[in-house]
């Protein structure tokens, strides 16, 4: 039952950090659009890019070097050899899943401690060595003889964030439609000018 689950940053060194550059570039692009553009639609687009940059940040955070999709491989199931009877098999599988759950927790906890030491963990998660892989089923996804899975948690979190982003965009566009119906423009400067004129007229009457 050796399952390696770690956040990618720990395994990251040198060329591995280009994703942060991309995230920073996207985020600044988005913020610039929001702040600098007077056109409301362009601001909403900027807001979207800004949110997407954070989503990409989380998604790239969950990557583990040599990691596969976080679906339990058959070789990691306990007692997957065919000697067992069917009745037993079900039980052991259940047990295996439970085991996995606590292992996941332990792995992520341990990972934080590695960070606390301040070092990069390239020693802990070295490249896969052929002699280390178990004779049973050699795989591209093994590190130190353990299967490496990407961390699914950040990805799951981002499902929520994507939903939030969609809702925000829809609501913002609906508001812009309503603003345009009255002022007949989506330029903030012009809306402000019309507002100032209206307020002066109201104050006079």
């Amino acid at each position: 039952m050796n399952i390696l689950l770690a956040t990618s940053t720990t395994a990251m060194s040198g060329e591995g950090v280009y994703n942060y550059g991309l995230v920073i570039f996207l985020m600044m692009t988005g913020l610039y659009l929001v702040l600098a553009k007077g056109n409301m639609i362009k601001s909403v687009i900027g807001l979207n890019i800004f949110q997407v940059s954070v989503i990409m940040f989380y998604v790239s955070m969950g990557r583990v070097e040599h990691g596969t999709a976080p679906i339990l491989l058959e070789q990691d199931l306990p007692h997957h050899d065919s000697e067992h009877g069917h009745d037993n098999h079900d039980d052991s599988e259940d047990h295996g899943l439970l085991q996995t759950r606590s292992d996941v927790a332990l792995a992520s906890t341990a990972d934080g401690n590695h960070d606390a030491d301040g070092g990069t963990d390239s020693d802990v998660h070295p490249q896969a060595h052929p002699e280390d892989t178990e004779a049973n089923s050699p795989s591209l996804h093994t590190v130190d003889g353990r299967t490496a899975y990407s961390n699914p948690l950040p990805h799951v979190l981002m499902l929520t964030a994507i939903v939030v982003g969609v809702a925000t965009t829809a609501l913002a566009l609906a508001l812009v439609v309503r603003i345009r119906e009255y002022y007949e423009t989506i330029e903030e400067d012009i809306v402000d000018a019309i507002e100032n004129r209206l307020q002066k007229e109201e104050a006079q009457s």
Partner: peptide
Amino acid sequence: KPPRASLAAYRYLIMGTI
């Protein structure tokens, strides 16, 4: 009437989302 509430909500949405 002028949709001032929508305008305020739009501006709050931009800031709040950031």
